[in-house]
């Protein structure tokens, strides 16, 4: 029995501009992610990875096809319903982070929870726990411009993971992180998925994409390949002697 997908893209395409400046950023892409699944997206710069994530998170409407989150088509939702879904069910790590400059790290993380009706003290407790999990308890009361690039990135990740998010969309969440910290983030995302969330991750690092159950490869706006783990590899030296 397969669980209902958390995210489903049905032939979703995106065209920017018109006439001479028309760009087809994404050709009809179809992709389905079940609870517990981590799916990674790879592809060259400009191939359409962020476009795919924008459509999945309802930040942008598809030009063709449909996007469903937890079985509901985003095109059928009012602006208010869409905003609520994005606050409550979808965690988004933006490629350019999007932290609010006038709020501290803890306030940034608590914001979506407060907007969603959580009490301030409760939201702050959750925010501190999320910072703890990502190893940054000490920056809780600093503003974004008082943090390093990698610290800001991890705050953005904590913001996407706080609360009962069922779908996590992460666009290059490890771009500013060293190898060890980056692996820590992937282990966290993996643990979230193992606990039942669905995650769609864009990354340039093959090593990080390898934490996914499926790795899809995009080329010029089209999904051209998908891989899963092969049978375990053992290097048998017996054959050499």
């Amino acid at each position: 029995m397969t669980a209902n997908p958390v995210l489903e893209l049905r032939n979703a395409g995106k065209v920017y501009g018109a006439g001479a400046t028309l760009v087809t950023a994404l050709h009809g892409a179809s992709l389905s992610i079940a609870p517990g699944e981590l799916v990674a997206v790879r592809g060259a710069s400009g191939s359409g990875k962020s476009t795919l994530l924008h459509l999945a998170g309802g930040l942008d409407a598809p030009s063709t096809g449909d996007v469903l989150v937890e079985g509901r088509s985003l095109s059928g939702l009012s602006r208010k319903e869409l905003a609520r879904l994005r606050r409550r069910s979808v965690g988004y790590v933006f490629q350019d982070l999007n932290l609010v400059p006038s709020l501290t790290a803890a306030e940034n993380i608590a914001l979506p929870r407060e907007l969603d009706g959580a009490r301030a003290a409760e939201a702050r407790t959750e925010a501190l726990a999320a910072l703890e999990e990502i190893g940054l308890r000490e920056v809780a009361d600093r503003f974004p411009d008082e943090m390093s690039g990698g610290q800001q990135q991890r705050v953005a990740i904590a913001r996407a993971l706080v609360g009962p998010r069922r779908l996590v969309l992460a666009d290059e969440p490890t771009g500013a992180l060293d190898s060890e910290t980056g692996e820590g983030v992937l282990r966290m995302l993996r643990a979230r998925c193992n606990a039942g969330a669905a995650c769609l991750l864009v990354t340039h690092e093959p090593r990080h994409s390898a934490w996914a159950d499926r790795v899809v490869f995009i080329s010029d706006g089209a999904i051209v390949d998908e891989t899963t783990a092969s049978a375990p590899v053992a290097v048998d030296l017996g054959a050499l002697t």
């Binding site: 090593r207 390898a210 934490w211 783990a229």
Partner: peptide
């Protein structure tokens, strides 16, 4: 990529 995934799973 497949091998990378299984090594990472390991």
């Amino acid at each position: 990529m497949s091998s990378l995934q299984s090594l990472t799973r390991l």
